[in-house]
Design a protein around this nucleic acid. Structure first.
Lengths: 356, 356
DNA sequence: CTGTTAGCGCCTTCAC
DNA sequence: GTGAAGGCGCTAACAG
């Protein structure tokens, strides 16, 4: 006899009677189900004697409350879906972890939504919350999963509790937790300026993402502030991947007047750039300094260890989840985006500008 | 008036009437709720004309079925919880991704369980499924979340659908998807043998985990097969971290008769070892070859790129989930563990034994 | 082909 | 301090 014979019951206890329900406990304790419920939820409403009897019956029956029923009754699932483009990207897991930490602390769980950058799947996750499989949704994708963003006003009304993290949709006024990407880029640039660099290249991220645009803008602004020109030749396309870093660096190195420093829009492309530079027999930071962005785990393990701008990823996750829980609790979200501070992490991949 | 005023309703549509229910649709279409339900679930049971009317009403009302109610009715959640020790570890996300892929294909979702190696939290996740928040549980932790494993027989009966991946509990006969760690270790060793190495060290993983023990056993077996002795001095403790790799390598390099190759129990410690070796002015693989285990994303991006034994992580996730879904479907799991093949990925960190 | 009916297991007034 | 009763929204018999 298999454990899994009866379809509707996910699992059976040995006694053949299925899982104990509240009714069973009530009968066992000689009270009504209402009393059992109260004992479990608000024990102070129940006399000590009854409470003890009920608790004993609960233990005896091996009773666990069925959240399915509770959820229906209360119209909530106590789970929040967190949607990322690619869980495999070392940037996201820590945000998820932060989100899960605060979720857990409040009795919520996190549903993972991996979209592989497919709008259809994004949409599917939205439907998950519309069908009440989740109470709300935290988006790390920077896209609103909707076919048409035209009728915003209407759309807005029907949107479930939504919080953005890292990415953001301007205009829309949805609660958002993120860093100031432009300012963070300026921080990176200032570090290079302090080391004497002036001819600084940028390996950009995919420019359909606002964070890439912001970082690029920060790069340009910093140059302007410093009274330096932004040369188009020094801005290399990239898409946040290792390979794009390799290729971008090759292009930059082929320049007649090559840069003495490179600011990459993320760590992976920075690491790619370092590889490319070293493979041409040049030294990092001896010949060229490289600074990254994000401070992923492996930034510390590269050779040389990567100087980078660290995002408080776990904190981003925690704050986003906290706002979510506030929303669900009827509290209104903070006005304006929550901007978290970044930190310059100085390691070995940046150094003084080499003498010309 | 905030969108979030009414506590029990996670969100409101603009019309103030709350979300449309099946009853609304039924009224709108002039049919019974049963017909609406059928139209949505088994359209072929309904006449074309009615179907059209119902569908129109659904659209008009902006109706989405409430899975909470459906779940209660059917006593299932259609979500599976996947428990990992540390989502931040680059090894896990891809397994999760694989699991999510097949889950999604069957209309299931994945709940993320991060334990931070805390048995209490493991237990909490088990309770999640016992309280029907999830239909089953995939464990990547190699531990049964139970206070006492003594009364196995009893415990066994009460266990929800459980599948192990990567790790496994011997004895217990629970469905498991994994690789043959000992054999994979031998594969790594054979590669080193072929390059002429004989004095080979091992940086072990934490020996309270069976996968570490198996890899160590494979290392020893391989030496024996080759007629070589296993020297205790060549076996360095480690715990799968970058730093433990650094320290282990330092100890090995300090040996009077140092090894010409190192087999690390995972990639992170291998990368640590490479760093330590290079920082002593030695070359990889010129002086010492290093081979890792797992083939994490960054294995390809280190300098030199890491030779390693690749686990089919995504496939592991997919298979584990497939078995889970079979279990839930009343099918019995495969007898014995499902063993997936590994693949030697030859990159630059291993080379011929240097001349003595 | 469609409607009626009866719950799924729990929580929550409303009485007593 | 406790019990009785109704209902959350949906689905699955069972009639018609």
């Amino acid at each position: 006899m298999s454990l899994q014979t009866l379809r509707p019951m996910p699992f059976e206890s040995g006694d053949g009677a299925g899982t104990a329900t509240m009714k069973d406990v009530a009968r066992l304790a000689g009270v009504s189900t209402a009393t059992v419920s109260r004992t479990l939820i608000k024990p102070e409403l129940v006399s000590t004697r009854t409470r003890e009897r009920v608790l004993k019956a609960v233990a005896e029956a091996g009773y666990t409350p069925n959240s399915l029923a509770r959820n229906l009754r209360k119209m909530q699932t106590r789970s929040i879906i967190v949607v990322v483009q690619d869980i495999t990207n070392p940037f996201y897991p820590e945000i998820l972890r932060g989100a899960e930490q605060t979720a857990q602390a409040f009795g919520y769980t996190v549903l993972m939504g991996n979209t592989d950058n497919d709008p259809v799947r994004e949409r599917a996750y939205l439907e998950l919350v519309q069908s009440r499989r989740a109470d709300g949704m935290i988006l790390l994708t920077g896209r609103l999963p909707a076919q048409e963003k035209s009728s915003m006003a209407v759309e807005r009304e029907r949107l479930p509790p939504l919080v953005f993290a890292c990415e953001h949709l301007p205009d829309l006024g949805l609660p958002t937790v993120r860093i100031d990407n432009a300012e963070a880029a300026r921080t990176a640039m200032r570090h290079l300026f302090e080391l004497g660099h002036e001819r600084i290249a940028h390996i950009a991220g995919p420019l359909n993402r606002i964070i890439s645009v912001d970082r690029l803008a920060g790069y340009c602004d910093a140059l302007t502030e410093r009274g330096l020109p932004s040369e188009p030749a020094l801005i290399a396309d990239g898409d946040f991947t290792f390979n794009s870093g390799v290729e971008a660096a090759r292009r930059l190195l082929a320049l007649a007047d090559r840069p003495t420093a490179i600011f990459a829009a993320n760590d992976e492309s920075a690491i790619g750039a370092i590889q490319a530079i070293k493979s041409q027999g040049l030294s990092v930071p001896g010949d060229i300094s490289v600074i990254g962005f994000d401070d992923i785990l492996f930034a510390a393990a590269t050779d040389p260890a990567l100087t980078t701008v660290a995002q408080p990823r776990q904190e981003i996750g925690r704050r986003a989840m906290a706002i979510m829980l506030d929303l669900l609790d009827g509290k209104s979200p903070p006005v304006g985006d929550v901007i978290l501070p970044v930190e310059l992490v100085t390691r070995r991949s940046t150094g003084p500008r080499p003498p010309a």
